[in-house]
Design a protein around this nucleic acid. Structure first.
Length: 482
RNA sequence: GGUCCGUUGGUCUAGUGGUUAGGACACCGCUCUUUCACAGCGGCAGCACGGGUUCGAGUCCCGUACGGACUACCA
């Protein structure tokens, strides 16, 4: 049987980084095994609909290189792929469950349920839905139940959980898990608005869509027993389960908005490269080899092994993300960087072309954290410096510096060629002749040309800037001293 | 409270009975050097605890502690 997996987010309006990892593992697993990866939208909560959420989700996923074989935008043979368009399916399956005596109707109000919970908490130290004491098909009988429904009473359908049973299943990452059925609540399957709950919709869809492996976050582990019960009730075989460890805040609680960014789009708009984010997130709770950190998508696919996924949650460490991003930044194609930078370059009013920006990026990339830093870290590549760092100036510009540098400046003005190699030779000859250290000459030049004490090699910088710009800046600086 | 799950340096991890417990981030130091970076080299630091099983346990079993998730007509 060929592998079919799905990523099934609810449309909250953004893609959570934890969701990104879940989607990624599903994608990797499918690709690794020549299977199919499906995107299904779980929008059964009508109170939490967000406009345009699906498009955003798909966009973020696509930006990270995750594409689906079947999705709402690319239907296959198992559609529809949006749960709100599958209501009839849930209804007919719920009916089957009711007819076979595996589920029953209930009429309790929210207040009654609340009161019941408080009572059980106090008197019995907890417990789920008390089916023998509440208003439902079991206490009321079939006839009264039918009449109530016919009269239009609000009702839900609940799963009749067997009393003395043990639910067991094998999780790919956690091994055998077993739960006593007595500890499982009579879960609501159909809500009073006619929509299914997650549990029903999920099970019905996974079966109908012929999902072979459910790969999802650990927060679903406690619900899985309920789902197994549902598969049993339908007489279906359950897919293989794999519950991924949670992504954690630094304080080891579940990764949340309160403690930082959780949306993929937040990271992308801050300038993290999607490849880096994906690589980073892939290694949270998993490492295919243990002695490497950087993997291309193809390598991750080739090496992916679900059984190697860790059991413990992993802290989302921004410092390591930064490092990972830098690893990708160092190898980023300068032309691509330039392309992404051009709008900002134009907006800043700099009259340079993409090729120049690309060369600047190649020169300065090792001093950037994000691509966009080029415009600040390397501002002097685009405009003459207006300010000169006081500390650097004090340290490298002494009373006799102008005098010492003057002849070299004239050599620069007349130099036959202005490429970095000949400039380097020129400077070497000059410092040798005047018996001064290299820094004595180059630091003042750096100051005059860039205004700051941090930057790429001076000769490469000068070559890129060009002679006219260099001389203009030097003359301006020297002129301002008088 | 109950149920379930987890626990290798500060963080991410490799490790499936015999290793001087490996790698990475961060941190510290050194080297390189025209600045800042990069790079290279070195250092700090770990198997939660207690019992078993075994000739031998980070690895297997039990317990304890700690942590987390779940406990909705949300997903």
């Amino acid at each position: 049987m060929s592998v079919r997996v799905r990523f099934a987010p609810s449309p909250t309006g953004y893609l959570h980084v934890g969701g990104l990892r879940t989607a990624l593992y599903n994608y990797l697993f499918a690709r690794r095994h020549g299977g199919v990866c499906i995107l299904r939208l779980e929008d059964t909560d009508r109170t939490r609909l967000v406009e345009g959420a699906m498009e955003k989700l798909i966009e973020s996923l696509a930006a990270c290189g995750i594409e689906f074989d079947e999705s709402p935008l690319k239907p296959g043979n198992h559609g529809p792929y949006i749960q709100s368009e599958r209501l009839d399916l849930y209804k007919t399956h719920a009916e089957k469950l009711h007819q076979s005596g595996k589920a029953y109707f209930a009429f309790d109000t929210a207040e009654e349920l609340q009161a019941m919970r408080e009572r059980r908490q106090e008197q019995e130290g907890g417990g789920g839905y008390d089916r023998k004491k509440m208003r439902n098909e079991i206490t009321l009988g079939a006839e009264a139940t039918q009449k109530l429904i016919a009269d239009g009473a609000d009702h839900v359908l609940r799963l009749l959980v067997p009393e003395n049973d043990t639910v067991e299943f094998e999780d790919v990452v956690r091994g055998r898990i077993s739960v006593r059925s007595g500890d499982i609540d009579d879960q609501v399957l159909l809500k009073s608005d006619g929509f299914p709950t997650y549990h029903l919709a999920n099970v019905v869809d996974d079966h109908l869509m012929e999902i072979t492996h459910i790969i999802r976050g650990e927060e679903w582990l406690p619900s899985t027993a309920k789902h197994i019960l549902l598969y049993d009730a339908f007489g279906w075989e359950a897919p293989r389960m794999a519950h991924l460890p949670l992504l954690l805040n630094p304080d080891r609680s579940k990764l949340s908005k309160r403690q930082g960014d959780v949306a993929v789009e937040d990271y992308l708009s801050k300038g993290y490269l999607p490849e880096a984010l994906v690589n980073f997130v892939a290694l949270l709770g998993y490492n295919p080899t243990g002695d490497r950190e950087v993997y291309s998508m193809q390598e991750m696919i080739d090496l992916f092994d679900l059984s190697k996924v860790n059991k413990a949650g992993a802290v989302f460490d921004l410092q390591k993300l930064d490092w990972m991003n830098f690893e990708y930044l160092k190898n980023l194609d300068p032309q691509r960087a330039a392309r992404e930078l051009m709008p900002a370059v134009r907006a800043a009013g700099y009259d340079v072309d993409a090729d120049y920006v690309a060369r600047c990026f190649a020169l300065l990339r090792e001093r950037l954290r994000f691509t966009a830093d080029l415009l600040t870290v390397g501002d002097y590549m685009f405009a003459d410096p207006r300010e000169f760092e006081e500390k650097f100036r004090k340290k490298h510009w002494k009373d006799n510096t102008a005098e010492l540098v003057q002849p070299f400046v004239e050599q620069l003005r007349r130099a036959e060629t202005f490429d970095h190699e000949s400039l380097h030779k020129l400077a070497e000859a000059y410092t040798a002749e005047h018996e001064i250290g290299f820094g004595k000459l180059m630091n003042p030049i750096r100051l005059m040309l860039t205004g700051k004490g941090a930057g790429a090699g001076m000769f490469e910088t000068m070559e890129l800037l060009g002679r006219d710009t260099c001389m203009r800046r030097i003359d301006a600086f020297l002129g301002s001293l008088a």
